[in-house]
Amino acid sequence: MKRGVPLIITFVVGTVLIFSVFIPPMENLGENFTLFFDIIAVFAFFLGGGNLLRVHLTKLTRRKRDWEYSIVTIVGFFFMLACGLFKIGNPGDISASLTAEGSWFQTIYDNVFVPLGSTMYALLAFFVASASYRAFRAKNREATILLIAAFIILLGRTPLGTFVTGWIPDSFSVLQIPNLAIWIMNSPNLAGQRAIMIGIGLGVVSMSLRLILGIERTYLGGEDK
């Protein structure tokens, strides 16, 4: 019961879904199962949200380090949840869109959620710089290739690229940095991307088979016993 049934479920569900692609009367099955997944995931929210609250309440009651901030999380969570579930401030009735203009939910989204998220995202501009400083060093042949490719592309995206190599005559124009950058994007880069994708395709196929056949079962509690 504890291990046998789950293995059978995985096997049956997986096999049926693979074959359903080839059988028109079952063509909606994949779509419906995706919807099933979404529904189960909403149930899982109870576990997740419960866990989030438990972690922060424990922190609060036990006065662990930084417990003050847990108040912020808990208050923010309940406040936003109330705004969302009861559609506070929504123009119109229960059928109004959750994200209607003027609702509290949308106002918080626009003025708290968006600035936080997009600033977090914008930190990438800084990390891109610090990572290239550290990583693009000519330590060995592979690292040197990485460095040169990155440098050419970077140069090609500024007026500097044209400035430095603009004098090269037309019959050697591929050596002009902007053209070289494009050529790199179009051929070696494309080749690399394709090789990676073909590998991934096969990796997923083999991984899925291992899961369906029950050879890989760590998620159910290992292979022993």
Binding site: V128, S132, Y133, F136, K139, L154, T158
Partner: peptide
């Protein structure tokens, strides 16, 4: 829009060069 882009790209390239000088 290209102003910040160009300057930032140049700064990043400068840091790559500095990094390599350090390494060498």
């Amino acid at each position: 829009m290209m102003g910040p882009q160009t300057l930032a790209h140049i700064v990043i390239m400068a840091f790559i060069i500095i990094g390599n000088v350090l390494f060498i």
